[in-house]
């Protein structure tokens, strides 16, 4: 499995090329800098969230609370900076800590009380939204200050928007953790066979707890980036993003059964999702068709992951 996922990622990346070619032919505007920058925003946001959300997914769970966590984080960071007067760097730090604690709480209920992850995180999605409403007083708040905070997302470095660097850093770190650390090995092992992993010295509860904590943390980072980019925060800011993240993960080959997954794959998945959405826009297909496309893509990707649609590739018997 050391080489195989890279092969999967390559195959995915190769699919991107004809997709780009088709989009370029269909719409000359596709390959313009302006348009690609647009695509990059959504890729960054989905990529940042996926880099953490992949952990619960590989252990066989799911984190549906990431949209609410991101929105709440935006509101909280604004609260710290502009209403409590805390400098922007500690504010961001505190916000990420809070996001991680939210994840830790989810992880605690999933791992220790053994309640299905989707129930726990879906409920969390709802109450976090409520908390976000309370903190923001139900309003859409504009963030105009401090300038360095705004520059996090709006600034450029070497001609590229800053969030790209943040996203790439997170993806590389996450991929490194997944591929090159003991914890990454344990995450994969728990997803593959919890019982065998336990008998080999892995503590599945601890692995789950940390996985959800990471997911909460990256959601908070995503929320901060989004706040800085859009310069406004509100409770429903990132609602529905969990579906895009899930789609990116599924396209990237992350499987809830089997302990497989790759952050780089998820990133390519995120790019694909963004291309599809952008392509539909460029081709003047109304926005309305986006959710239809996303839903169809998920089901197709699931079927592909399960070995359907590709003749003679049922490699693993599921006995």
């Amino acid at each position: 499995m050391n080489k195989k996922p890279i092969a999967t990622e390559l195959r995915l990346a190769i699919v991107l090329v004809p997709l780009m070619a088709v989009l370029t032919i269909l719409s000359p505007r596709f390959l313009t800098l302006d348009n690609l920058t647009n695509v990059v925003w959504s890729v960054c946001f989905i990529g940042i969230l996926s880099s953490g959300a992949i952990y619960p997914r590989i252990t066989g769970g799911i984190d549906l609370s990431l949209g609410s966590t991101a929105a709440l984080s935006g509101i909280v960071v604004d609260l710290f900076m502009n209403r409590m007067g805390i400098p922007w760097i500690p504010s961001i730090f505190l916000t990420v800590v809070i996001g991680s604690l939210v994840g830790l709480f989810n992880g605690f209920i999933v791992a220790k009380i053994k309640i299905p992850a989707f129930v726990v995180t879906m409920a969390a999605k709802t109450y976090l939204y409520g908390i976000a409403l309370v903190v923001s007083q139900g309003a859409m708040l504009a963030i105009l200050e401090p300038k360095p905070f705004i520059l996090i997302s709006t600034g450029r470095f070497l001609g590229l928007p800053n969030p790209i660097y943040i996203m790439v850093a997170l993806v590389i770190t996450s991929q490194f953790v997944l591929r090159r650390t003991a914890f990454g090995r344990q995450v994969m092992a728990v997803g593959s066979n919890e019982v065998a992993a336990r008998l080999s010295g892995v503590d599945p509860d601890r692995v789950r707890l940390i996985s959800y904590t990471i997911s909460g943390g990256t959601s908070a980072v995503g929320g901060v980036i989004l706040a800085s980019l859009t310069q406004q925060v509100f409770a429903a800011a990132a609602s529905g993003i969990e579906l895009d993240v899930m789609t990116a993960l599924v396209i990237g080959g992350t499987s809830a059964v089997g302990g497989r997954g790759s952050v780089v794959g998820a990133l390519i998945g995120a790019i694909m999702v963004a291309f599809i959405i952008n392509g539909l826009n460029l081709l003047n297909v109304p926005n309305l068709y986006q959710p239809i496309a996303i839903g169809t893509v998920i089901i197709l990707a699931l079927l592909l992951n399960e070995g359907y649609l590709v003749p003679k590739r049922r490699t693993l018997s599921r006995a």
Binding site: M1, S192, N193, A196, S200, G258
Partner: peptide, 20 residues
């Protein structure tokens, strides 16, 4: 199958897990 192996992981990973 149920308790010994990580079926979806490589030989390397299987051998690696208790030796982390």
């Amino acid at each position: 199958r149920l308790q010994g192996i990580l079926a979806t992981q490589s030989i390397t990973r299987n051998i690696g897990i208790p030796n982390l």
